[in-house]
Design a protein around this nucleic acid. Structure first.
Lengths: 247, 247
DNA sequence: AACAAACGAGAGCAGTGCTCTTGACATCGA
DNA sequence: TCGATGTCAAGAGCACTGCTCTCGTTTGTT
């Protein structure tokens, strides 16, 4: 399942000398082992020494390939973002282009499925920040926004297609400062939807992640909800109405 | 594990011996210092040795008062739950008893204000679980449910007062398993509201925490939203409508 | 005064991230 | 082909962590 990054390889225009090939392979191994450790022990317990042990190498050797523990965390962060982005894209692409409500639900379900399968990665991406670690914006913002960009794309396409009934939302006044923020977003992402619709989209977005986080982080009691699939599905239906997507 | 001897407890009916007073004070100091470290360095970086240093004592001495690092984490967890619960209670109590929408907003704003002021505590309570730490249910469930119990109380009181217009919510069918879960909750908490209303309440609850978590965990970009107070307030207005609370 | 419990200090073990040095090896240019 | 250059794994070492154990001392009770 490890989709090696051809982009990174191609970026090195140099014909791959055996040494560089070995180096790339070693880094890939480190990421793979790091992902395993992340899944088992969690982000804050990610140990470079443990990865080195599994790699069959002394700890200091890993520093030849990865500058830091934080560097490894960043690599795993990008890896997870892309893994999630790929699965979300695949799920949404499987829905007919005009079924905007179905696309929205498919996106949300894909996120939830991935989150439940990879709780440690989900925590790394959307949970409490790892103490002492600050993700470098330049390398993580692009993969980190894939899902939200996709969701906004669905909403905006629905709006342009006239499939968003703003009528469902009773007029709630949008204050000046918020309107300015939304205008900036509209300009930056080349959107057509009006303020109220965008604001609804933001709320739906945070709500979906709130619901998923409650599950992954164990905020529901152990046995408060047995039918969690049904609960999430029901929440999606309500949120679909909040967004104005007619089913 | 609660097979404690009541004889021993009764024998200690006199809790005001100087030694026990000193012991209680020392534990209080440890919690206070631990809370400071938590606020500054985060939960996963909470160091018993550092607390001991600030206490002016060698590290092993702290183990006379706190069994574990996890034990200290549990104490801080309960401390934070109660701090949040107190502030939420105070905020809701300041709103007239019949203004259910106002009570809801006051509760949500109190949670958000506390979360932004104490992000590390918020992360400990509602963020990714600390690796290797499992909160002991017996001691944390009661303080840990204060806010949700209060919110459910507001919703149910509003329903009983006829202030919840289920008309706002178009009929979304509630499947069997979810209905069973909701019925169990209704019985356990002695509620009157029907399934659809309870389900809406759960969604509102998760949505509020999703919005707060996005802020605290830095999921909004650094400058995507400048008017965050307005954004949250707007989200509350929409959620108020979702819950069926007429303003 | 005698005793037992509680206590603080310190040593010690195993683990962590990270740095530095050392010696072996591969690669490339002359 | 030979030497310079660079890369690599290994190991020692530093400072930190959680935690345990022992050893005297202090303290409150009898």
């Amino acid at each position: 399942m490890t989709s090696a990054e051809p982009a990174a390889v191609k970026a090195k225009q140099k014909p791959s000398t055996p040494r560089e090939r070995a180096r790339t392979q070693t880094i890939a191994d480190i990421i793979r082992l790091g992902r395993e450790h992340l899944a088992v022990h969690g982000a804050a317990a990610l140990s470079l020494r443990a990865v080195a042990r599994d790699l069959g190498v002394v700890s200091s050797a890993v520093y030849r390939y990865v500058e830091n523990r934080d560097e490894l965390l960043t690599l795993l962060l990008i890896d997870a973002y892309n893994q999630l982005g790929d699965e979300v894209d695949a799920a949404v692409d499987a829905v007919p282009g005009q079924d905007f409500a179905g696309q929205f639900k498919a996106l949300a379900k894909a996120v939830r499925t991935w989150a439940i399968r990879e709780p440690a990665s989900y925590s790394l991406l959307f949970g409490s920040p790892v103490p002492g670690y600050q993700a470098p914006g330049e390398r993580t913002t692009v993969p980190g926004t894939r899902v939200i960009v996709r969701l906004v794309g669905i909403f905006d396409a629905a709006y342009r297609a006239g499939a968003l009934n703003a009528a469902a939302s009773p007029a709630v006044v949008i204050p000046e400062g918020l309107a300015a923020d939304l205008a900036a977003i509209r300009g930056e992402m080349d959107l057509a939807a009006p303020d109220a619709t965008l604001a609804r989209g933001v709320l739906v977005w945070t709500s979906v992640f709130g619901a998923i986080s409650f599950e992954v982080f164990g905020q529901y009691g152990r046995d408060t909800f047995a039918a969690r699939d049904e609960l999430f599905d029901h929440q999606l239906s309500v949120l679909q109405g909040v967004a104005g997507l007619q089913g």
